[in-house]
Design a binder for these strands. Structure first.
Length: 558
RNA sequence: UGCCGGAUGGUGUAAUGGUAGCACAGCAGACUCUGAAUCUGUUUGUCUAGGUUCGAAUCCUAGUCCGGCAACCA
């Protein structure tokens, strides 16, 4: 993919708090000046725009400081993890414009080291095999305001725990029968320090290690060690892991870890009019509220790709929103602004009429057609021009005509004139109604060539009725009707689903649009940005997804 | 009633003891063969109360409010 980002696309990077931490570390000579980050998705769902923020942060920081960013799958719980997701994640990260080079890892690659570190912990008396039932475990843990109780297993001699742990690995016990726990402090005000579970028994097929293991490490145990093994310097995660940091540090202090990375937390992205959790997105897919993970209405990376959002625009957005430590809700308008800003510069202009109204030119010259020259992109002279056939019968947008125009209506009305983009002027002489329905069936108009001096306040787009071809166009509105579908806890977010988030129309398009390559973006003049769908387009028969509408002042002013 | 974190216009952010700035959104205007884009102007802000200081968004104290934490999830 070409990098079309120009300096003006990208705001001057703010020295957000993570950059400041790294600057300070570098100044102090920490980590021998290395900056190694990682993006650690769990392969149990598709990536969304919130992940894009993390990807841009981690890969961006590595790039910026001449370091390295590892792509690592946090695949320590095989319950919902699948290779399908692994492949989708790679495609999405690459499409966003980032490259992990040879640094492509799986936490499951470290199952053996994890196990050895667990044994080390047991031998040091810092971990024990606990035989409490899950119910008892919960009760012993206590609540935030009350300390927990120590498990009877807590003082089990290391040798005995070691034996038990080895038998856990060997499959001698039932799922959930025993767990390995860290021996920390049952009275800690931080629940995560109350002898947290390190390993559990789960006989589940793992997407990479198959049936090799029946015990799997927990996130807290696996993540810090993975970071240490890979020599990560700055382990950047979201705010909810803040309370896990003492445990991250505790584990690395107890074992003979090769390094001790620094965990730094930032606020995850919230975007208005959508939801941002894999669980809820999965629900939308499974319950068929959308057509799949890559439905263009989804906030997933693949959905946005299909929608026609350029990766550069997403990266600009991620830089623009900044990085902080407090929860916020970013307005969808900002993302759309970044998308339009990019597409305005790069998308070729074409004409398509979404809701056609027939126009018959009463004084058309005695010729089948007149060739008119149209500019492909006024923002980019290199994009050249094209020729369009202007004919006696046209289609114009139904909303560009008003039989009884409201005040400040600039477009066509009985007796009024309007400019046709690149093709002279139209003056409405007669309105033809459908005798049965009374609907406007056609307009009979006088035409004046471009060189005529006609005073008009608007220019409208058009297509030749003979030459235009029918194309399927999908128009999108926001997925939800409210800015924060999750605002009311425990309520069903799906009740805010917008029933009109998708509408399909058959539009009339200028012939040049038929050649659109899947994934290619255009501006339909005066209408919006549209992208030829990558899945449903056929050669010569593209299907267009609306990427974003043009800002429509006319809606307000009549 | 516990612990951790946080609070700057409508929204997202910057300013790290020295003129509260930028972007989005809004509004108004200019320009325009896209009512787009572009350009110009503009409304709106430091959670509260004390304190330190010549000077506080920034430091201190107390309070208020918000978020996270009680999976053998990540």
């Amino acid at each position: 993919m070409s990098d079309t980002t120009t300096p003006s696309d990208t705001p001057a990077p703010s020295r957000h708090f993570i950059r400041q931490i790294i600057d300070r570390d570098l100044a102090e000579g920490k980590n021998d000046g290395r900056v190694i980050t990682r993006f650690p998705p769990e392969p149990n769902g598709y990536l969304h725009i919130g992940h894009a923020k993390s990807i841009c942060l981690n890969f961006g920081l590595a790039e910026e400081y001449g370091g390295q960013c590892h792509l690592r799958y946090d695949d320590t719980n095989p319950a919902a993890e699948e290779m399908e997701y692994v492949e989708a994640i790679e495609r999405d990260v690459r499409w966003l414009g980032f490259d992990w080079g040879k640094h492509h890892y799986f936490a499951s690659d470290y199952f053996e080291p994890f196990y050895r570190y667990a044994e080390e912990l047991i031998q040091k008396g810092k971990a024990y095999v606990c035989t409490l039932s899950p119910e008892a475990f919960k009760e012993y843990r206590g609540v935030p305001t009350r300390p927990g109780k120590e498990s009877p297993s807590r003082n089990r001699p290391p040798a005995e725990s070691l034996d038990l742990f080895r038998r856990m690995r060997a499959g001698k016990f039932a799922d959930g029968q025993y767990v390995l726990r860290a021996k920390i402090d049952m009275a800690s005000p931080n629940l995560h320090m109350r002898d947290p579970v390190l390993y559990r028994i789960k006989r589940i097929h793992h997407h990479r290690t198959g049936e090799d293991w029946c015990i799997y490490p927990m996130y807290d145990f696996a993540h810090c060690i993975s970071d240490a093994i890979e020599g990560i310097t700055h382990s950047i995660c979201t705010l909810e892991f803040e309370v896990h940091r003492p445990l991250y540090d505790w584990i690395l202090e107890q074992i003979s870890a090769p390094a001790h990375p620094q965990q730094i937390e930032f606020a995850r992205l919230n975007l208005s009019y959508t939801v941002m959790s894999k669980r809820r997105l999965l629900q939308l897919v499974q319950e068929k509220h959308v057509a799949g993970w890559d439905d263009p209405r989804m906030p997933t990376i693949c959905g946005m790709r299909r929608r026609g959002y350029p990766p550069e625009a997403i990266r600009t957005f991620c830089e623009t929103i900044g990085v902080t430590k407090y929860d916020s809700m970013t307005e969808m308008e900002l993302l759309e602004h970044c998308v339009r800003e990019n597409l305005n510069k790069h998308a070729l202009r074409r004409m398509a009429v979404l809701n056609p109204l027939r126009v018959v030119i009463t004084n058309f010259p005695d010729t089948p057609a007149i060739d008119v020259k149209a500019v492909n992109n006024p923002e980019d002279t290199d994009a050249g021009t094209r020729t369009m056939a202007f004919t006696r019968e046209l289609f114009i947008e139904r909303e560009d005509f008003a039989e009884e125009p409201p005040p400040k209506f600039f477009r066509l009305a009985p007796g009024k004139s309007v400019r046709l983009r690149y093709a002279g002027f139209l003056t409405c002489e007669r309105v033809e109604h459908d005798p049965a329905t009374g609907d406007i069936a056609a307009l009979h108009c006088r035409w004046d060539p471009p060189e005529t001096k006609v005073k008009v306040k608007a220019t409208i787009h058009w297509v030749s009725a003979d030459q235009a071809r029918e194309i399927e166009v999908r128009l999108y509105d926001r997925l939800f009707t409210v800015p924060d579908p999750m605002e009311v806890k425990d309520a069903d977010f799906k009740r805010h689903l917008n029933p009109r988030s998708l509408s399909t129309v058959i539009a009339r398009a200028e012939p040049a649009l038929l050649d659109a390559a899947p994934g290619e973006s255009f501006q339909f003049e005066r209408t919006g940005y549209f992208c030829a769908d990558m899945k449903d387009s056929r050669p010569g028969a593209p299907v267009f997804n609306q990427t974003a509408a043009l800002k429509a002042v006319r809606a307000k002013k009549g």
